[in-house]
Deep mutational scan, measured.
Amino acid sequence: HNLTITQGKLFFHYNPKLCLSEIHKMEEVSGTKGRQERNDIALKTNGDQASCENELLKFSYIRTSFDKILLRWEPYWPPDFRDLLGFMLFYKEAPYQNVTEFDGQDACGSNSWTVVDIDPPLRSNDPKSQNHPGWLMRGLKPWTQYAIFVKTLVTFSDERRTYGAKSDIIYVQTDATNPSVPLDPISVSNSSSQIILKWKPPSDPNGNITHYLVFWERQAEDSELFELDYCLKGLKLPSRTWSPPFESEDSQKHNQSEYEDSAGECCSCPKTDSQILKELEESSFRKTFEDYLHNVVFVPRKTSSGTGAEDPRPSRKRRSLGDVGNVTVAVPTVAAFPNTSSTSVPTSPEEHRPFEKVVNKESLVISGLRHFTGYRIELQACNQDTPEERCSVAAYVSARTMPEAKADDIVGPVTHEIFENNVVHLMWQEPKEPNGLIVLYEVSYRRYGDEELHLCVSRKHFALERGCRLRGLSPGNYSVRIRATSLAGNGSWTEPTYFYVTDYLDVPSNIA
């Protein structure tokens, strides 16, 4: 807008934040220059609390790290170098490059900038070799853009010569660093050979998330399962459950009422301010606690030095998902009996873990797994792929695949051998790939016309006998059925096997 004052003059007093240069501009645009008398524009009460600059400061050096910015700028000295009290560095987070010096300023003089007072450097006698002032900004957020400017702080001049310097606002972004852990990993099994893994992005990506790394490792069953005799009275049979499938998407929606109208769909109840505040506090606490764990609990591995020492970490090797089922080394339970199943799973520490690289999504279907087997899954978020990966501390989750139908069934015939004193040795093959492992066998036998009897055969007993022995049988026709019990439950009964026990007292003698 054009402003013209045809008559009258300007009068400025007691404006401590208004620089004289701005008042002189007002004289020019209003056409009143030359009308004012000496005392109409006070030299001592206008701009006496402001830094009124008329020179431009330029930054000469900028260096960044993930949490620091090192700045240096060209030296500046007023005509009387004693008038320079120091520099004021202003900075704040700036997602967009549209910041002005006066953003967030209120009537009390406060604003949204963080201000650092910096002492002037030592003055050199040689004007050509003056030290460049600077400042190291610490405690910054990774991968965050900051708006920065600097200006001088000078003393009051009796001659009211307006001098000083100020830089333009520059924008500097800190470097990326390792992201925080992925949030809320959930693993479920939808079949006997697959596990579905879902997660949420890290709360602090500290860069642009480029991919996720998912490692999985087959877990050995508890050692007590191999040692305890679950045929003993009072000892509860062990059981394991597989990871249940995901709930429906509708039930997972946030901010939804727990109660549904019987007449149909209901609208979600909005969260109160107290609920939102509580969630923010919980989120802040979780982030602080995660940072504490990362800094205190997890110790970084030592990389190899120039002395030739090897990095103890196993090298990563990509495998196809079809090879995942046989990740671990199978060892027989008892070496003397080769027909026992290889369900003991000690994992070799030198073995390469299978892994998958996930790009542009937060889910993965891990296939080719062994049925009813526990897996430990390790999830890392990465925001750099080359020249070397920059990934987060791992988040861990466990899951067990679903049982395989008929995996616990005894394959092959049940054979028998009759000894003296009416002892019958029953023999059968253990299931080759049971659900988890076989903890015991149930032997059901009966003599024709009598009630059915049951015998429990422990895992250890089966390994020693290759089956079991029935003792003290009365003469007669017998039928026997056997079924295995694994961590997933009972298998199917075998087809009945028949044998006849004679009275050993009636056996004919070869003595003449």
Rank of each mutant, 00 (worst) to 15 (best):
T272R: 08
E282G: 12
C456S: 02
Y396V: 06
N339S: 12
T415P: 02
V507R: 15
L321S: 10
K361E: 08
G472K: 07
I418K: 13
P338H: 12
A407Y: 07
P312F: 04
P244I: 12
T288P: 07
I276F: 03
F226D: 14
V457E: 03
T307L: 07
D311E: 13
T288A: 13
C269T: 14
E417Q: 11
P238I: 15
P387T: 13
K432P: 12
E378V: 12
S315K: 03
F226Q: 05
E442N: 03
G489C: 03
W216Q: 11
N206R: 15
R471N: 12
Y292Q: 01
C391M: 04
V358W: 14
S315A: 14
R376D: 15
R301F: 04
A263Q: 11
K233S: 10
Q256N: 06
F289K: 03
E224I: 07
V329S: 13
S251Q: 13
S363T: 09
M427F: 11
R218Q: 15
N435G: 02
E442S: 06
H454Y: 15
S363E: 13
S474I: 11
S363C: 11
S509A: 11
V439E: 04
K361D: 03
H461E: 05
R319G: 11
R447Q: 14
H416M: 08
N422R: 06
H416A: 10
E221S: 13
T494R: 02
L437T: 00
F462Q: 10
F419R: 12
S243A: 11
V423Y: 10
S223L: 06
D311F: 10
S367P: 11
K233N: 06
R218P: 06
I410T: 05
S458F: 04
V359P: 10
N383V: 07
T343K: 12
E281H: 15
I209E: 08
E282M: 05
E362F: 12
V296L: 05
F285S: 10
N422E: 13
E420A: 09
E221P: 05
A399Y: 09
L293V: 07
A336M: 15
G264N: 13
S342H: 11
L321A: 09
V327F: 12
V329Y: 05
F289W: 04
H454T: 04
P300T: 10
S304I: 04
Q380V: 03
E404Q: 14
D385H: 14
R286H: 07
S348A: 04
G472Y: 14
E290D: 15
S398Y: 04
T288V: 11
H371R: 12
Y445R: 02
T328Y: 13
T343C: 04
Y259T: 12
R466Q: 05
R400C: 05
E217D: 12
R471G: 08
I209V: 12
F289Q: 11
I276M: 09
G234H: 11
L237I: 05
S479R: 07
N435E: 01
A336T: 07
E224H: 06
N206F: 11
Y504E: 13
G207K: 02
V331K: 04
V296E: 07
S239N: 03
E310G: 14
K302F: 14
G476I: 00
R240L: 08
R471S: 12
L321W: 13
N255R: 03
H352I: 04
A335S: 10
E465H: 11
P387S: 10
G234V: 08
Q252N: 02
E310Y: 15
H416P: 05
H425E: 12
T485M: 11
T343Y: 12
D291Q: 06
S305N: 10
W216A: 06
Y292P: 09
E356H: 10
A463P: 06
G322H: 08
K357R: 10
A463N: 09
S458R: 09
V411S: 09
S479Y: 10
R316E: 06
E221N: 11
V327K: 02
D229C: 09
W216P: 07
V358S: 08
L232S: 12
D273Q: 10
R447G: 15
Q275R: 12
S223C: 13
N477F: 03
P496L: 11
P238Y: 09
K432C: 09
E420R: 13
L473K: 01
Q429M: 15
C231K: 01
A394P: 08
E465A: 08
P314K: 07
K361N: 10
E258T: 12
L369D: 01
C468A: 08
S486W: 00
E281I: 13
V365I: 15
S486V: 01
A335I: 14
E404P: 02
R353L: 05
A463G: 10
F499P: 01
G325C: 05
G412H: 09
P354R: 08
I377N: 01
R483F: 01
G207H: 01
S304T: 10
P434I: 09
M402S: 12
A395P: 02
A309F: 04
L364M: 11
E495W: 05
L277F: 13
L505S: 08
I366F: 13
S344D: 05
F215H: 10
P238Q: 14
L232R: 13
D408G: 02
D409F: 10
P387L: 14
Y292M: 11
Q384F: 12
F226T: 12
Q256R: 05
G264Y: 14
R318H: 08
